[in-house]
Structures are given as C-alpha cells and as structure tokens.
Design a protein around this nucleic acid. Structure first.
Lengths: 225, 225
DNA sequence: TAGATTGTTAATCGATTAACAATC
DNA sequence: TAGATTGTTAATCGATTAACAATC
C-alpha cells in the first residue's frame, strides 16, 4: 500500500464522502463499488482502486461498509473540524459567496469579508466585512489559511502579494489573472507556500462553445456507427 | 500534422489568445515560446508543440508573429462573433454573474436571466430576467446553446432536464449536484448532446485545505534538500 | 455450487518532458 | 561563426482501463 494519492483521486475521495454521508442519512449500511461509481461518474474499478490505495477493503460479496468508509475518508482528507476561510473583495461575486448557504452544509465557514470600499464595510454584520488593511492582523490572529479572491482584475496581483505575506496558504482565485510569483513555483501554481486554484468562468464558457462546435463538426464528418 | 487537440491544450490555446491580444495592444509584433510560456505558466517546449499541432510555425531566430498566431487561434477556437449565453437561476450567484463585467471584454454576452421567483423578474432591464417557463421558447427563438446554471441544488436536476430538452448544449454548472443523464454519457459529462462543466466551489476549497495539510506534513517528514 | 463482487496486476492511453537536430 | 530559437522525435511520467484470480 505505497501508492500515491494524486489530485484527481483526492477530488474523487471528497465526492465519495459526500455521497456516502447522504446514503448514511437514508439509512444505508453497505454500498457496492458499482453504485458509488455511478453516483460520482466513475467506473467501479476506479472506486475499488481508490479504496485500495487508502487502505479500505470491502467484502467480496457484500460491498463496503459505509461507516468505515466515511471514517477513513474523513481521516485521509483531514476534515476534522469546520474549515474557516475569508473572502477578499466583496463586490458582486464576493458578496454572493458571503451568503452562499452550501458552505455551511459542507463544513466551510466564512469568518469575514474584506474590501477597500468604505460603503461595503460592515463590522457588525453576521459575517463582518472589514477594511482591507485589517487583513494581515486578522489572518494572523485568527490563523486563517485559505481565502477566496474576488477583487477586480487590476488589483489582483497586488492583493495577492499582501495575502501571501499575511500568511494565506491557499487561494481560490475568481479573477481572470494568472496569479504568479516573484519566487519559484511548482506545477500546482504555488508561490512560496501558497497554492492557487483558478476558477476562470470566461475560459470555461469559451471551452464549452469550442466543444460544442467540435462535436457538431465531427458529427457531420464521422459516420453514425 | 495529424495530432489531436486535447482538453488541456484547448485551455492553453485560449490563454495564449488572451495574452497575445494584450501584447498586440502594447504594440508587440513578435513573441518567443519562452515568454509566452512564462505568461501562461507552461514550458517553452509545450508552447512550441501546441503551435506545431495547430499548424503554426515561427522563425528559428525571431520567434512567432503575433498577428498570425491570433488569426490562427481565433480560427481554431472558432471564436468569430460574440458568444451569447443565458443565466438560469438569478439568486445570489446568478445575479452576480449577470453583472460580471469581464464577460463583455471576453466576447461573451449574457442575453437573459431566468428565474421562478416573481420578484426577480425584470423583463425591461438591460439584461432582462424572464420567468423560467419562457426559457424553452426563448432558447429556441434566440438559438441559445450555452447556459450558466445557478439554481438551488434541490431543483438542479429537473431544471437541467428542461434546459437540455429546450436545446441547450453546454452548461456551466454552479450547483453542487453532479448532473446526470437518463441516457448514455461520454466521459466529458455529456447527456445526449449536452456538455456539462462543473464549478464546485466547496470541493475546490476542501481540496485547498487538503493540499495545505499535505504540504505541511511532508515538510516535516521530508529532509530539506 | 453458481453468481457476484472485490482487489491486484498488467496493458493501455494520454500528456508532458527531455533531448537534440535543424537553421536563422 | 556563434548563439539562440524552433520543431520534432523519443522517453518518461501519470492515470485510467482491462483482465482476471480470489473469494464470499
């Protein structure tokens, strides 16, 4: 059992966990690799491989025990307590995220928002929105490690620098700026100690159009098998 | 030149295009694979390979001509005119997207929003928000092919069905529901003729926490080389 | 037993990286 | 020429898929 847990696999593990928790809520006790695969869009073989890698075994005839799987997945994913994050930039997208209900259900809690604009500041709100210059102190005091970045593109890079210096180590980046590092990066988009995941909405939509066009043209050229 | 254009490559092509258009605006004429690679976070070899696959060649000494690249990329990506989309579900995230300025700059235009809630309907707004039951007629009349889905999770599946039946062929899915198909799917998440891309914010944040924990623990175990 | 399911290994597919010849 | 850059091929890495033995 000396196999690596790679990125696509981690994402699958998180998906398994969600599905399993729902199944458990429905009163299920066991599950087959078959059904779990269907639920997250993977083949049964992948499911079994994944479980094998994290050291879970099922029963040859009866499938996997849901409780044991949930425990092990929580353990592997390290998802013990609520994960606390901040939202930097409380414009349209940022403030939409502040109110995003799904987070709570998923064990994620936004503890504060930050903005430069005076009329967005609301220190007394349920989720306080604070002035941007209080970010470093707040991050240090509250030991925040992960943030959502939803500022205008023009200031993305400079805000990014501030966040990294403040100690943020993971960023979900909603700007369309490719965040980059003065220092060396690894392939995952890491500056010093900060991992960045990009949510590039425009790029995704462009890609959808491309795939549609591709499918249409190949439908014309390829024979209908 | 009979090589396939695969998904990661398409995303890179779209990124090249953006950078090149900015370079052109700055008055640049030529560019090296080296610099382009830096700009999108890829190695020079990848850049050259990509251009080779789409049939663009540079000059051994002087790099690539920006104009020629832009033309070819627009051609390959099929990005001729403005891409028209709709937003289904105009709650927090949906309405934030309605006002998302970047879209215009990227050649994407939201032509309408849809919602079931009466007090969100605004047929006279600059971007009209229409009742959900007008969606099929609208999609047919305006020949809409791509949509953003930002409805509550509970109704995601049923709204999805309606959209696909209406003729939508590409969806950017902001719900945390894995959209699935009664009929057969291919690996890209395709139901009948509809391609789905998922933007799973919660999952991304979880993954960030996982990677951070991983990095910290491996920093402890691994020797500092 | 027969049938179904797990678990593991090998084969394959996909994409990136390395290496280097060609050449401006 | 010397140096720098392209362009292509082969090697490598990474992940999925296929196949099948084990076994409940």
């Amino acid at each position: 059992m000396e196999e690596k847990i790679h990125r696509p696999m981690v994402l699958r593990l998180a998906r398994y966990l969600r599905v399993l928790q729902k199944l458990k809520a429905l009163g299920f006790v066991k599950v087959f690799s078959n059904n779990l695969g269907d639920a997250i869009g993977a083949t049964p073989a992948v499911v079994r491989k994944d479980f094998s890698v994290i050291g879970i075994s099922g029963n040859k005839r009866g499938g996997y025990l849901i409780d044991a799987l949930i425990d092990r997945l929580i353990d592997v994913l390290g998802k013990k307590e609520t994960e606390r994050i901040i939202v930097v930039g409380c414009g349209r997208i940022g403030s939409a995220l502040l109110e995003y209900r799904e987070f709570i259900r998923e064990g994620i809690r936004i503890v504060a928002g930050f903005d430069v604009s005076r009329d967005r500041i609301e220190p007394e709100a349920q989720i306080p929105v604070l002035p941007a210059d209080e970010l470093p102190a707040f991050v240090a005091r509250e030991e925040i490690e992960v943030a959502v970045l939803a500022v205008p593109d023009q200031v993305a890079t400079s805000v990014f620098e501030v966040m990294v210096d403040a100690g943020i180590r993971g960023i979900l980046n909603f700007t369309s700026v490719e965040l980059k590092c003065a220092a060396a990066c690894d392939e995952e988009g890491c500056r010093q100690e900060c991992t960045v995941h990009n949510v590039n909405i425009g790029l995704e939509i462009e890609n959808l159009f491309y795939l549609i066009r591709l499918k249409r043209s190949s439908a014309l050229t390829e024979p209908v098998e």
